[in-house]
Design a protein around this nucleic acid. Structure first.
Lengths: 218, 218
DNA sequence: GGATGTGAAGTATTTCACAGCC
DNA sequence: GGCTGTGAAATACTTCACATCC
């Protein structure tokens, strides 16, 4: 069970959430640098790539340890490995997709999750028309199978792409089954108990916050 | 090194970007309240719906004006209308989709943009196999048509769903054509000149920032 | 009574600037 | 010389608390 109030070990959880949210971007750039054969990188160079100040990168990293060499910079393979370790990206995460409509199908067919450490291992839907179909190599299962599958296949992350009106109940159900992180595509923010992580993918909100600046000079 | 040339970009109110980013959420809730027939709402009630403190809502709104009535709260239809006006959502925005692969198709078929003030009016692709196809009621056009269409149909927003390696060039091209806001689905952050708005939809980054917290108690 | 609008106070986050090391 | 790591300073953002008004 998750306990807090015991600062027994490392300075693990005192990194601001905003810092944690930036680490995956560092990982991504470092992976590219590694592929390009770059050995060493400075916070200056990293910052230029990411449109971030060098100071911010150094400060961010300092929450987790001391990874650089003064006068030289950071070893690309070493820093990459350490950051992946910190983020828990050195092992593969099994993911369930719930809702196999148009959007769910697109997600299941999207090749971008796998190379980054996520494996879509199960797909669920309520509709009898969809259950049993094969999509992207997976047989769509009835939602009743959720409990068993989550347990048997060690799934701790779910991608939810069901109609808005069913999203909250689906998320509730997932949490009951032991899911601890949800990536939600419906235009609401599902309510969850403490300790469960939710991220929303909401392109309409993104568009609507840009129109503010577009209307500026009309 | 002296100061960077800072163009005084105070075109309109000096509302922080983080505040602007919240307004669309307020709009969404208000639209629902309106549909439910709710006439008046307090910052308290709004906050409860959004998981935000009432003080934050009042402060956010105060950047743009005084919309409430003391002792009563906010008129739902009035506040909704004013916020839509501020965000530029009282008229419809024409949007181009560039890249009609699997993802582009899913976006074109997604019904969620239209009700919120965005109309997908043109689709482009480079592949001769795709050009000429009809997708979601639109005929896919060759990318060479971009200039003309952007001009003729008053398109100021583009949704870009092309392979990562072509994203930067496509965005550059769009900006040259007069596009001023880009919603990008590739896992990079396109570089654009000052004044152009970019938002990225990047589910992998979202997942990767959650695994940090999942690995916490291993 | 009840709620807004807002300076002031309190936090959080970013940037500075420099000692320390390679 | 160049670059990290980090306290301290600066800035950004959120919350408080209360005067003010319906």
């Amino acid at each position: 069970m998750t306990l807090d109030s015991t600062p027994s070990r490392q300075s693990r959880s005192d990194a601001p959430e905003v810092v944690v949210a930036r680490l995956p971007q560092y990982v991504r750039i470092l992976a590219r640098l590694l592929q390009d054969g770059t050995d060493v990188v400075s916070s200056q160079q990293l910052g230029a790539r990411l449109q971030v100040t060098p100071a911010q990168i150094r400060k961010d990293l300092s929450y987790f340890g001391r990874f650089g060499k003064q006068g030289r910079g950071y070893s690309v393979p070493h820093l990459l490995d350490r950051l992946k370790q910190i983020l828990g990206l050195n092992s593969t995460w099994n993911v369930a997709v719930v809702g196999v409509g148009r959007l769910g199908r697109a997600i299941l067919s999207y090749p971008g999750f796998t190379p980054d450490g996520f494996r879509l291992v199960a797909a669920f839907d309520v509709s009898p028309d969809v259950v049993g179909q094969e999509v992207a190599g997976l047989t769509v299962q009835p939602i009743e199978q959720l409990d068993d599958e989550v347990r048997d296949r060690q799934i701790s992350i779910a991608i939810v792409a069901v109609p808005t009106e069913h999203t909250q109940e689906v998320v509730d159900r997932l949490v009951e089954c032991g899911i601890r992180a949800v990536l939600n595509y419906a235009p609401i923010t599902p309510q969850v108990k403490e300790g469960i992580r939710v991220r929303n993918i909401d392109p309409v909100l993104s568009l609507q916050s840009m129109t503010y600046y577009l209307s500026e000079d009309l």
